[in-house]
Design a binder for these strands. Sequence first.
DNA 1: GATGAATGAGTTTTCATTCAT
DNA 2: AATGAATGAAAACTCATTCAT
Lengths: 173, 173, 173, 173
Amino acid sequence: MTEKQEKILTTALQLFADKGYDATSTSKVAKAAGVSEGLIFRHFGNKEGLLNAIKQYGMEKAALVMGPILEEEDPKKIIKAALEMPFCIPKNQDPFWKLLYALKWQEDIYDNSMSDPLRHKLEGAFAKLKYKNPEAEAELVLILIDGVATSILLRKCENSEQVMQSVLAKYEL
Amino acid sequence: MTEKQEKILTTALQLFADKGYDATSTSKVAKAAGVSEGLIFRHFGNKEGLLNAIKQYGMEKAALVMGPILEEEDPKKIIKAALEMPFCIPKNQDPFWKLLYALKWQEDIYDNSMSDPLRHKLEGAFAKLKYKNPEAEAELVLILIDGVATSILLRKCENSEQVMQSVLAKYEL
Amino acid sequence: MTEKQEKILTTALQLFADKGYDATSTSKVAKAAGVSEGLIFRHFGNKEGLLNAIKQYGMEKAALVMGPILEEEDPKKIIKAALEMPFCIPKNQDPFWKLLYALKWQEDIYDNSMSDPLRHKLEGAFAKLKYKNPEAEAELVLILIDGVATSILLRKCENSEQVMQSVLAKYEL
Amino acid sequence: MTEKQEKILTTALQLFADKGYDATSTSKVAKAAGVSEGLIFRHFGNKEGLLNAIKQYGMEKAALVMGPILEEEDPKKIIKAALEMPFCIPKNQDPFWKLLYALKWQEDIYDNSMSDPLRHKLEGAFAKLKYKNPEAEAELVLILIDGVATSILLRKCENSEQVMQSVLAKYEL
DNA sequence: GATGAATGAGTTTTCATTCAT
DNA sequence: AATGAATGAAAACTCATTCAT
């Protein structure tokens, strides 16, 4: 990956996350990245190719956050780590997640491939802890993660630290 | 509001919710609504005017759901009603909420005007129930509402009924 | 068909015939026709749609030349009329035929739909005149028509009148 | 001429003949030839330079077919050889002729330099055979050659062998 | 000789919007 | 109120060509 290629990628991520994918023209990306517009297409084929490259680029970094949880064995630690995940995302990954969350609303079918491994892990954890309905509990944790992440990414609340305490309390963690 | 005016409104809502506001051209709206392109502009001024009309149209219907909760006095009932809200949205209001949730990600500043009345009501309820941190608890309920609504609108999970049971259990409701 | 629509059609025909379809940009067509570029796409969908409209437009006029021959019954008259066809094309139809002849070379499969009716008519005529191989004779006439038309359209020769005499002599017409 | 240079030449010829010169981008040529985009320009200067190289390359091979006819002295043999020329073109020269015939339609002025020597030879031959109008007869043979060649190159007819018999019969050859 | 990143101008196409009818 | 022709600007994308390596 050349220097300009990477510049395009990070600039586009920034703009896509900020203004939205459809509202961001390739010419704006090129201008902001300081490259010719043609270069975007030479490197990424088309606008969607650029988006896919961004997704993959971010996914690789995201896997680093998710990874350790999937290796954990202690059920309580799994649940706690999962619920704390939204807080552990490094600030510089915010645009990536903002983009991903925004994009979800336009996808024709919902893609579970990213959440499924975690869901399974959580189901196992809740089962071990003798919860009555592990599937529903796992689902709820995923919902909470999404809700909290949304709240953080949109800077909706300032007291997220205390919110997290309330959450953890509900699971006696 | 004439018949065609209403047709434009509902068609645009459908398309905006489905494909996204920016990805939906006015000409597609006109074609899908079976009206001339010019009519949209005669009635709504411009594309943004159409969006605003949709927002207002939906907001009025949404107020009907929110209203009763704000009148309720029993704290437990308030919390329960709030948490159950995502399930009470009539299916035909789904596109409106999908659109609103999608739009949030592109707004420069987060608009709390819709959630604030409910937030206050919830804070009061949790205070009455002697929760240690009513603000954080209220915030958490709002996050849960958003999370569950998202899950339902995106048809992410099928067992939402059981998820709700798990949620209510956490509040001993 | 509006006035501007027709202007686009005739201007494009002129330019396509002159410079070639691929070498003529829609912006040049628009500029030469004195209309906005968008209008081309509103009326004809895309560049190929414009080309197809031109083809059909020309085909309708071409049918007027071909028609009488297909109604003729005297075999000698049929052959004579066919061979004289290239001379009977009104000058203002030249660009259309130039375009069609040029386009042939890029078509993936050869389209016989235009020549087939004439071919059949000629086969019948040669059969009636007891020629040994009516199919080959009909084919040869078609080849001659194409050859002579090409020569005329490209302004290759000045003595086409005498050439035609030589041709007719070969068929004792 | 290096191996890659030749590969570019033959690949470009193939594509130009198939899709047309204007419709074939240099990048497609490079990709199809398996060379870098820049190499075309290093070797041929620009796209037109590539086209000219192809023309010259083909012209040299074409001269080999035309040559013997121009040396012949027997008038009947000259005419027969000329008329049979389209059949004598080796199959692998087809793309070259397809390209040349297609290109004719976009040339501003018609270039007779290739046909003139043959035309003169034919005029002499017809004069020797006491034809009334040798110029027109020579022109007609050239037209026939073009017509038959076109028919063969576009694979329009399958019975070209019999067509040729019909042609030769007209000249009592 | 050969590569492939990079460019700027151009191409096809879409868009929101206007306006005469 | 309603149509649909028309537009100018901008969108996505392609192209021939250059140049550092």
